[in-house]
């Protein structure tokens, strides 16, 4: 084992101990309360999860939830970046978008879900909620990155008479993208959680949210926690994948 691997394992050890302790506390609580739909034992949760893994609807629900929320996330990122660039060059758009972004940021997600549910089919709501959650986070960071460019580089492009399109392509856009990467990672976690919340509330067909809602309706605590565990695990995997992807993208601008 290399020293790098050893150091990595050593740094993970405290987290592994913390997780083990938390699971132990859960198990003790489950045995003490002894009401499986409130605090089911870990063995039962994992038994349910093991059973679910071999069903088609488990994978269909995961696939369609991922598809819906990822679509919303991607649309949200692209839309906010495009509008941030347009607003940078067309001030009236910035004045129009600033209060809209503030309203979106301050409105509870559940309110948005209810408003959209009045107007639209439940199938599109998780995607739209992901767009609405991603938009203010990414727009604001893109807006800030473009308004605080590197003053030395700005002086350089002015001295070298960069045309507006050249300045946009070689200074504004790369500065914005570099500044916006951490916000995209944050937004991905928020989009995932809000998308699942929208699925639960609107009882979206073929979704993780619907499975969670069903488990709650029928007081199936083990299933509720098994699906919640799936959501947490997927959120973790998605965040790692996005981080890897963005790290690769960031290398272009290093």
């Amino acid at each position: 084992m290399t020293s790098i691997m050893k150091n990595k394992l050593r740094s993970l050890l405290p987290y592994a101990i913390a997780v083990t302790l938390l699971l132990l506390v859960w198990e003790v609580l489950a045995r003490t309360v002894n009401v499986s739909f409130i605090v089911p034992p870990l063995s039962e949760i994992f038994a349910v999860l093991f059973g679910l893994v071999f069903t088609a609807h488990f994978w269909t629900s995961i696939f369609l939830s991922l598809l819906r929320i990822t679509m919303g996330f991607v649309i949200g990122v692209v839309l906010s970046l495009a509008l941030a660039i347009c607003a940078h060059f067309f001030k009236p758009l910035e004045y129009l978008l600033t209060p809209i972004v503030t309203v979106i940021r301050c409105t509870p997600v559940a309110s948005f879900i209810m408003i959209l549910w009045l107007l639209l089919s439940e199938a599109v709501i998780p995607s739209l909620i992901a767009v609405l959650i991603v938009f203010p986070v990414v727009w604001q960071s893109a807006h800030d990155a473009m308004h605080e460019p590197d003053k030395e580089l700005l002086e350089m492009v002015e001295i070298y008479n960069f045309t507006p399109s050249k300045k946009l392509w070689y200074l504004t856009v790369p500065t914005m993208i570099k500044g916006v990467l951490p916000a995209i990672i944050t937004a991905s976690g928020l989009a995932w959680k809000s998308g699942i919340a929208a699925e639960i509330i609107t009882y979206t067909k073929h979704s993780i949210g619907r499975e969670i809602a069903n488990a709650k309706f029928f007081l199936m605590g083990e299933e509720l926690l098994a699906w919640t565990f799936v959501v947490v695990l997927l959120s973790f995997i998605v965040e790692i994948l996005i981080k890897l992807l963005l790290r690769k993208a960031a290398k272009i601008w290093e």
């Binding site: 030395e152 350089m156 492009v157 070298y160 050249k166 070689y170 601008w253």
Partner: peptide, 26 residues
């Protein structure tokens, strides 16, 4: 005018060659 600043002021996302070409020619 062309100006050599005391700091290099190169665009970090472009190669060495492109830094020269992009700034010097439209």
């Amino acid at each position: 005018i062309s100006y050599l600043f005391q700091e290099h002021r190169l665009l970090p996302w472009l190669s060495a060659l492109d830094n020269v070409i992009v700034a010097s020619f439209n």
